[in-house]
Design a binder for these strands. Structure first.
Length: 519
RNA sequence: GAUUCCUUAGCUCAGUUGGCUAGAGCAUCUCACUUUUAAUGAGAGGGUCCUGGGUUCGAGCCCCAGAGGAAUCACCA
């Protein structure tokens, strides 16, 4: 493999460090005592501006810039919290006759991106920069590739930004090193999940894990990834949902379960879809979808607040969205009435086709009543729902796992939470009548025969579990990635995933394309 | 899947109607310098112009095909 001049120089420097008798990849624990950001935030000074605390600190991180001026140097050290300036003078780190630690190691063999550890005291330079006056300096790890050097001036102008999305996503380690501002997105993601988990724990639910490799892909309408188990010699699918397994656990006698689950869908990729994504689903016995709406409001208000220092408002593009409950509740029919003026209550399939025609919505023959309503909603309503809004009471045809509405014929007890024009959560009073459930699966099979490739497959074991009896149950799924996008103001799902799916890098392809046909 | 645009040094980018040896800043290398700050001064090196064809006396530039990427649309309960 061809190496650039800079990579060759770094390999030479690596050898020269060894020649000095210094191990460039030492094994021992390095006793870090402080983080850059903590020092900068908590520094104290006396009346003359002299720093009075942090007189013995030890930090470690990458060297991100170095300005040598003869026998003294300035450098920036970046640790997990941020950057701090180092002041390194020759006679401090190399007090004896041998000045090689400074003249050779620090000035010549140290490259940008190398990890070092330093000990010293905190002071302020003439220009007022909080800095560490280094007394001891330890080499911790060599970087053999040059990092992009991104600089920002006092006015916030960024120079030589490492901004190519492809390179950023392919080499996230480089991205987050030189663009540490993006770390905040992932910290928020982590805090959001932590807050949700503690909310669900406090609710008395139990965190569980269910199979990712499934013999039947159920619980959602989507194309799966197919694989094969060699010993069993059977096809397996990566789960498109975990819903049917969580309900089996309600049958089993757990009153409340939740799972943060990776889902896999073999569909298109764009800025709101990644082939694998994360959802949290939870199911609670003896509750209904009304209870779940209130719980969902409380959960999101709590979680968004926890991420945003108590503030439930987030800005997404033009819009400010407030996750403080209660949220507006609007039936599907009323929502369509409000945004199109069309009345879908009691409309049969032919009437719905007429409505679609009037609204200039393209439909095809495979679409049943439920799908037609979904098209109208998706085309004409969804995008208008900016503030958190519960859309409730869906047509039965598009909800094969949902209990029939307690009072409205042809509807089911289902809601979706719409935020910023996108679906964020989907929930229902779970269908627990096994005979009804079997009929719904059979209806799905008919849709499949009609050509609907998203129709659900029959799951006999799931039906068997329902036949043993499942208590009335409310369940919900909440898409974590899209929620993180909203609370971090990102418009692309790739920005909230550490390692979004990418096409293979050049050279690494040539795999045969085998079809992932199901059934 | 469709349309449009993009791919030039480690990074960010110029590159004229098609014309000498393809440029700049940062990074790298050499020398000088003990409180500097995106960028100290002086000097030097560094290129598969995405790939493969074609047109031409001559291609980074024009044409064809391909790869990768971005945006918009379609699809995605």
């Amino acid at each position: 493999m061809e190496r650039s001049e800079q990579e060759l120089v770094r390999r030479e420097n690596l050898q020269k460090i060894r020649d000095l008798g210094i191990e460039p990849y030492p094994a021992a624990t390095f006793p870090v005592t402080h983080l850059a950001a903590d020092i900068k935030a908590n520094v104290q000074e006396d009346a003359e501006g002299k720093v009075t605390n942090f007189q013995e600190v030890t930090l470690a991180g990458r060297i991100m810039s170095r300005r040598v001026m003869g026998k003294a140097s300035f450098a920036n050290l970046q640790d997990s919290s941020g950057r701090i300036q180092l002041y390194v003078s020759r006679d401090d780190i190399a007090p004896g006759e041998d000045k090689s630690l400074y003249n050779d190691l620090f000035k010549k063999y140290l490259d940008l991106g190398d990890f070092i550890g330093v000990s010293g005291f905190v002071f302020k330079t003439r220009t007022g920069e909080i800095s560490v006056h280094v007394k001891e300096f330890t080499f911790l790890s060599k970087s053999l590739r040059p990092l992009p050097v991104v600089k920002t001036d006092d006015e916030g102008n960024v120079y030589d930004a490492f901004s190519d999305p492809e390179l950023r996503y392919r080499m996230r380690y480089v991205d987050l090193t030189v663009n540490p501002q993006y770390k905040e997105i992932f910290r928020k993601r982590s805090r959001l999940i932590t807050a949700m988990r503690s909310f669900l724990d406090d609710l008395g639910l139990m965190e569980v894990e269910t199979p990712i490799l499934q013999p039947i892909h159920g619980g959602a309408a989507a194309r799966p990834f197919k694989t094969h188990h060699n010993t069993l010699d059977v096809p397996m699918y990566l789960r498109i949902a975990n819903e049917l397994y969580l309900k089996r656990l309600i049958v089993a006698g757990f009153d409340g379960v939740y799972e943060f689950a990776k889902m896999f869908r073999n569909e298109g990729m764009d800025r709101t879809h990644n082939p694998e994504f994360t959802a949290v689903e939870f199911y609670v016995a003896y509750k209904d979808y009304d209870w779940m709406m209130t719980t969902c409001e409380n959960l999101l208000e709590h979680a968004v607040g926890a991420v945003n220092d108590g503030n439930t408002k987030v800005r997404v593009g033009e819009n400010e969205i407030d996750f403080k409950g209660p949220y507006r509740r609007l039936t599907m029919a009323d929502a369509i009435m409000e945004y199109t003026g069309e009345n879908i209550r009691g409309a049969d399939e032919a009437a719905l086709r007429d409505i679609c025609k009037r609204l200039h919505i393209e439909v095809d023959d495979t679409m049943g009543r439920g799908k037609l309503i979904d098209e109208i909603f998706g085309e004409k309503v969804e995008g208008h729902l900016i503030q958190p809004t519960f859309i409730i009471d869906y047509p039965i045809e598009m909800s094969p796992l949902t209990k029939k509405h307690r009072s409205e014929e042809g509807l089911v007890e289902r809601f979706e939470l719409m935020v910023n024009g996108k679906e964020v959560a989907n929930a229902y009073s779970e269908l627990n009548d096994p005979i009804d459930q079997r009929e719904r699966f059979e209806d799905q099979l008919k849709l499949a025969e009609r050509g609907d490739d998203e129709a659900m497959a029959m799951d006999e074991d799931f039906l068997r579990s329902l036949e043993y009896g499942m208590p009335p149950t409310a369940g919900i799924g909440i898409g974590i990635d899209r929620l993180v996008m909203m609370i971090t103001g990102q418009t692309s799902i790739q920005e909230v995933l550490f390692f979004p799916q990418m096409k293979p890098e050049r050279d690494g392809q040539a795999e045969a394309d085998d079809d992932n046909d199901d059934d």
